[in-house]
Design a protein around this nucleic acid. Structure first.
Lengths: 120, 120
DNA sequence: GCCGTACTACGAGGTCTATCGTACGAGCAG
DNA sequence: CTGCTCGTACGATAGACCTCGTAGTACGGC
């Protein structure tokens, strides 16, 4: 439980009603972002810092991808100390688009297995 | 090239094994293309000519979007006379990514209803 | 107070995308 | 054959996107 040590730094997230399907699909259409989402889904409910994901890109690019995921309503991000923790917005997504996230994740897992592209 | 033998102008489609999830998601992330796919799904199995879709763009742009859908494995296209008919590749998509197409279509329908953006 | 860590902001480069307009080829109706 | 309709191809333009590097801010420990 993140006891919101709230430092005043707050990040803008779309309301559930603001989340658009095209935006979510677009966010998931990038391999790097799909990888992040898959990692988050694997540790359901876990709040992971950006540095936990060993992405093969620079930190600037990571920031960009996390921002896209957040602004499109796929993840939620909060600050805690110097770290920024990310969580999948499964509840909101499931409420808006039932079954979508699960089938996308299943499809990604299946394709990763098929192509042997399964990363950590 | 398009060295078409008069009766059988054939179009290149990806094999089922060539269809990539990111590509499918990317194809569906565009409102114009999502609209095409929804129309096709609504008349399941039907072969509809491009002209059936009254898209608010020029013909060049339509051609472009249909091409993207075809090259990414979402639809199949065949010539018949002067018309080019399009069909949803539901069988292949369902085999590759079970449930994906249905949940995306359901999500699109739900969002259209929510936003009152239902066209057609 | 000072420094290291974690992440951000801004700008730039290169690529991709969506859109259009115009010109062309393929088929069908006279 | 002549024209008409359907769709394609090519070129161009404007905008978005992914990537990076550098400089900067917030936080925690010394």
């Amino acid at each position: 439980m993140t006891t919101a040590t709230a430092s005043g730094r707050t990040l803008a997230h779309p309301e559930p009603g603001e989340i658009r399907l095209e935006a979510v699909l677009h966010a998931l259409a990038d391999p790097m972002r799909m990888r992040i989402v898959r990692d988050l889904a694997r540790e359901e409910g876990a709040e992971l810092p950006c540095s936990h994901f060993r992405l093969p890109v620079t930190k600037s690019t990571s920031t960009h991808h996390f921002r896209v995921l957040r602004e499109n309503g796929v993840i939620r991000q909060i600050y805690r100390g110097t770290a920024k923790l990310s969580v999948l917005r499964r509840d909101d997504l499931d409420a808006l688009f039932p079954g979508l996230l699960d089938s996308v994740l299943a499809a990604a897992a299946r394709q990763a297995e098929r192509l042997g592209t399964d990363e950590a």
